[in-house]
Design a protein around this nucleic acid. Structure first.
Lengths: 110, 110
DNA sequence: ATTATATACATAAATTTCTTATGTATATAT
DNA sequence: ATATATACATAAGAAATTTATGTATATAAT
């Protein structure tokens, strides 16, 4: 994924947040978007991403549709109704997580 | 550890940061300090903490000394020279991580 | 022409990290 | 007498990710 293993466990909310903002995306597009957004800091590996997308689809969080671009296939994913409900919950959790980490990392005022 | 698995991979920098600020701590103390600092949000389990402390000690990042308190034993850990060097590096990584996550989670200004 | 890189999907073995369960033992509060 | 808190530890299992591998087309570079 990248140099540190801090991102472990954050992949799902990241992907869902991107899908919320972009309506629909295909796998490769997600990897490129994350690389671009984070200036290369975070590189999602395919071995992590594709199984996650499959899990989320199997769980009714995402739905997909294939599309032919020239001779190539793209599999577009988007949030289902249940997915849209969950993404907000995920975001709240991430925000709490960020604040909590800050409490520990940044020395509290004396 | 807690409800979400967002914290996966963050335990090591958290523990090292606490040791940096407090000079020396024992395992149980670390679990209580984290619970207190995060108002219960993050509860480190013993099954995660003790093996980590052992790994870090084996890797020359931490050193320990036993102390008898009444009839009980406490094992105090502190950063070695190498540990002090690494903790700063860890903190930088966590700060970059927090900023990067923010880039993704908080919709960029249009 | 040929080779390397980019696009685009996928899976599987191995690793890492953590949870859950279990064990030992003392101290204190009910 | 019992439950909870303090204090260490390990081990089995689960979950998420890395690394490696595979297929296939498109494009850029030599």
């Amino acid at each position: 994924m990248n140099k540190t293993n801090l991102y472990k466990g954050c992949l799902e909310p990241i992907v869902m947040q991107l899908l919320r903002e972009n309506n629909r995306m295909y796998g490769y597009e997600i990897t490129q978007k994350v690389k671009e957004l984070t200036k290369g800091e975070l590189q999602i590996t395919e071995g992590a991403l594709y199984p996650l997308l499959h899990r989320l689809e199997a769980g009714g969080i995402l739905e997909s549709e294939m599309e032919n671009i020239g001779n190539r296939i793209r599999k577009y994913y988007s949030l289902t109704k249940a997915g849209k409900k969950q993404v907000q919950h995920n975001l709240d959790e991430v925000k709490t997580f960020l604040q909590t980490l800050n409490l520990i990392i940044n020395p509290k005022p004396a």
